[in-house]
Amino acid sequence: MPQQTENEYKEILRQYLEDQSEQNLYMGEAFSRKLIERDISPEEVISIHKSALKDVLPGLPSKVWHSFDFLIEMMIRYGLALKEHQSLVKRQEEMQLEMEVAAKVQETLLKTKIPAVEGMDVGYVTVPSRIMSGDYIYFVGNDKDEAGVAVADVMGKGIPAALCMSMVKFGMDSVRHSAEGPSGVLSVINRIVEKSVNDSMFVTMMYGLYDAKNSTFSYASAGHEPALHYRASENRFVELDAKGLLLGVSQDARYEEGAIVLERGDFVAIMTDGVTEARTPEGFVEKETILEIISSVKDRPAQEMAEHVFAELDRMQGFRLQDDFSLVILKKE
């Protein structure tokens, strides 16, 4: 090791042995930072100490010198543990970077465009609780009189959920939406997920199709959180649910289909459990509270509504989402 380090150490040690002041110790502390910066291992520090002491306090009994050799032996594994730690930290940083790139890839992969449909105002928000999302929103439409929307939630979070999500996206891209209808789409996606995803992965999904020709909204659900239908004429919410098993459980699961007619001012809210199971330190946010939040902005455009609900629930959870959050609002103008 460099002679300079040894000389510096010797000087600080000599001064400390002279007057044992806090000032000396402070210098020692500062010097230990330098040692770490210079990548000097614990066993080398003992060795530096030993040779410095040989100059400063010669004539110590030989057993004292042997004791330092013993201490060096003691420190070898500490040095190794430190090196391993440093390399693991570096690996973690690399993984973090990789994750960020993967999240960007996912963002591009899951990009979706709100379809333009006569008389229908659509808005949505989807925010992952961690770097990668297990929620998925997918729109299709003919930009005339038909719009389909899927909201899916993969159980689990992070990378496994994100990978599974790509399967769902692949399925969505290959299915013929308007010919299959909501329950048909879910059946197709179910078979894809069942085949390609392992047994411990489950996906819930709500699929809805709006037909502007007769203002009908038909829907099917694979074990997903019920959607909400706001009826303007009665000023109340009705839950929209349809029987159906989670995706990926059984090849031949069947999906019930429901349909409603949307009147002027009505809207449908489809969400994941990141919305309905929002948690504050005091416990779950009451369903009533969530309905109140949605109601309070019912006259605003769909996108503003979705953003407001997110902002409120985010605030209530101290800006730390417990779960991926997704909400779609389809509003009849």
């Binding site: 070898i76 594994r77 190794l80 430190l82 391993e84 730690h85």
Partner: peptide, 20 residues
Amino acid sequence: EDGYSTSGGLGAGMPGVKRL
């Protein structure tokens, strides 16, 4: 790989030998 040995996290094992 670091962290693989049965005493993982103590810096020992084959990666330790390589470092020494």
